[in-house]
Design a binder for these strands. Structure first.
Lengths: 243, 243
DNA sequence: ACCTGAACACCGTTCAAGT
DNA sequence: ACCTGAACACCGTTCAAGT
């Protein structure tokens, strides 16, 4: 904690006046916010921590950014935009494969930035007119159109995919990130078992299904499982189309 | 704001000592928390507001509840449990219809308590070993089993449904709740158009698909659209099964 | 135009003290 | 065992003042 703050301060302090005249900008602030969120988690983004890292006062930040909500929004938007801009594997791929590629890109982004999961949920439900929702919707929707889905099903098919992707990526990736953070092999194995163990210890009368499925939850590979879900929704889109 | 606090205080103040000796309990605290969240939104749950409404000090609350996180968890769990306990329409219904009924129950719960949406996302991604995740998973999973899905697909099928339900319900219901809160017919119509209008005003070069779909987003009925998505995932489950 | 930093109102949580 | 309420550390935000 202390270490992080000190390094940040030293890194931006080398020469005082000159470097700062051009240093502080909306972009620099957003970058620092993302770094803070990545290293210290959801509660790590603080105006105190931000001012320390950028070697300014809160007033300076408020000159470039309206408030904390806008900052969080901009951080989310930046990371998602970068994730969506990553090149698709092959332009000649089938639309299905391109959808899988976009989905995996979002999966990995949430994996690297676990704070994205609740943030995306908030923005999707509270601010669908913000920049993030249309960006994701558009990139998936284009591929849905290429799939040959009839126009009246575009909206349903696209939001089905988007909801699944964000929901599943959020759940799986946050788990994976927690696992990765653990040091020893033993710690890691312990955590991987934790969820399915907790599920196996549920009341057999109340939770027969969840218990029966607990071993599947343990053995599955996160990415593989995620893609299986994508294929499920894709199959549904095709099936509904044929009716 | 002032109004809310004062009413709350007066309501719990009628007779002072006697009523309180048995009044304060974990359950009463959780109920008060839900009321606060419902009436004042996500930021409305405060230990200050809670103490005022319950006519106690913060220490008394901390005797029954570990911290704010636990309180939020308990509030979420209570509301979700109630939503899942609602009777299914007809026991003779097909598994598909029963899944639709459960899904609509969750949809309506999120509709009545919009703060559930980000809260569920957080609990699904951060605390899948908590009580809420297995509860939802179990009730959907049982019906998936009744659908005749082979065991190796149980996990994929169930999490596909659950992710879609929570994602779509969160988005649609929060919007609907905002709409309902508006007073005049004009205000309401304005809000309903707001999202699709914002989407129609997007850059035609960057957002051709989203723009093309904006009118569908405006005209759709929320519940109908939600059920169409459920059917999409159900169709996928059936289709994958047949392969 | 851009930045400083003290100050404000408010938050979750603790804890010695009471009953 | 259960409750009180003052106190603590910390938060987002403002604003008069500087350059």
């Amino acid at each position: 904690m202390l270490q992080v703050c000190q390094t940040g301060r030293m890194a931006t302090r080398t020469s005082r006046t000159q470097r700062r005249a051009e240093a502080l900008s909306r972009e620099r602030i957003i970058d620092a916010a993302v770094e803070l969120l990545d290293s210290a988690g959801d509660g790590g983004l603080t105006f105190r921590a931000l001012t320390e890292r950028l070697a300014t006062g809160p007033g300076a930040i408020y000159w470039h950014v309206a408030n904390k909500g806008e900052l969080l929004e901009a951080a989310t938007d930046g990371v998602i935009t970068a994730a969506l801009a990553a090149k698709p594997a092959e332009p000649a791929d089938s639309p299905q494969d391109q959808i899988r590629a976009i989905a995996l890109g979002l999966f990995d982004a949430i994996d690297r930035h676990p704070w994205l999961a609740p943030q995306l949920a908030t923005q999707f439900s509270r601010k669908p007119w913000g920049p993030v929702t249309p960006r994701i919707f558009e990139s998936i929707g284009r591929k849905v159109r290429e799939l040959g889905v009839p126009k009246e099903n575009w909206f349903t098919a696209t939001s089905g995919l988007v909801h699944y992707i964000l929901g599943a990526a959020g759940q799986n990736a946050a788990n994976a990130a927690s696992v990765r953070r653990l040091r020893t092999e033993a710690e890691r194995a312990e955590f991987v078992d934790a969820v399915s163990k907790a599920w196996e210890e549920l009341d057999p009368e109340e939770y027969p299904f969840t218990r029966a499925v607990a071993d599947q939850a343990r053995e599955h590979d996160d990415r593989e499982q995620f893609l299986a879900g994508i294929d499920l929704v894709l199959a549904g889109i095709t099936a509904v189309q044929l009716r």
